[in-house]
Amino acid sequence: MSASTLKRTRRNPAPALKPEQGRGGSSIERQRRKLLVPFVGPAFLFYTVLFIVPAIAAVWISLNEWAGSGPMTFVGFKNYIQVFQDPLFVKSFGNTLLLLFVVGAAIFILAFAMTLVLRDMAAKKIARNVIFFPHLINALVFGILAGFIFNPGGMVNSLLKPLGVTEPPAWLAQDNIFPLIMATMVLTTTGYFTTIIMAGVDRIPPYFYEDCALAGATALQRLRYVILPLTWDVFGTCAVLWTISSVKIFEIIWVFGGSSGAGLPPTQTWSVAVYTYVTAFSGMSTPAYGAATASAIISLALVTVLVVLLRRAMRRDAIEF
């Protein structure tokens, strides 16, 4: 860092080189301090207004009983107790963890596998685009497509009929929808993370691979000794991104069950985000904003704890190359 700072000061002589007497810190430090308020101020202000204040308000609402408008009654931690005692919340929480860990593991295993294959493949740019493509499609399309493919009179059953399958499985039965959602998540998200990890892999200088080839390393050894250590920070960022986004998974569950969003999805598929939404906005009963925000705060806490743990677990000295 100091080297680059020096380089910059030399290149930019005008105000920075004028030394001021009596005050602490180098001129560059002071310059930076001066810029802090105009640069960080506006962003900080908007961040406070748009995120921090609402988050604090949410904590306050979660301690009250409130129908969204009208009188608020302070009830302390009752909403939290109520939410934790609700077997449906526990089930939703479990589903969120399944998405986070099971889908997450599948995504990263597949992403690294594809990275290995894609690096040496001909037409890898096209392949990369094809893999990334599902991520661009709105979840609603998958919801409708699932109906088209798996409905009792849908594509799969029509294809099975000539093969003599007259009693096909109930593909879209309530218990089968969650595994289907998990599979769809893997399909849509793997390409996204493959692309990011590939960008990290592309930075690795080719002579490392040449070294590997000379040493007779297998693809797996290459992954272990070259690719993983040199893309560790990229992987860490991806893991954090996935953790944050997986806890918020909502729309795909919403459109998969319950008639593509016209009704509520079956409770077997609910995630914490869906539970929160239904509690506040089901439109079928008096909104319970207190319980809904309590559930939202719990998932916020979950994300925070997981991200901190993850950062800690993934901490390595960055390798300069």
Binding site: D86, L88, L264, T279, S282, M284, S285
Partner: peptide
Amino acid sequence: VTTAGYMEKNFNPTDDLLFT
């Protein structure tokens, strides 16, 4: 019945099991 969460979290999921 519009009591908060009764239908959507309790009755409907159980009634779905009966109906299917």
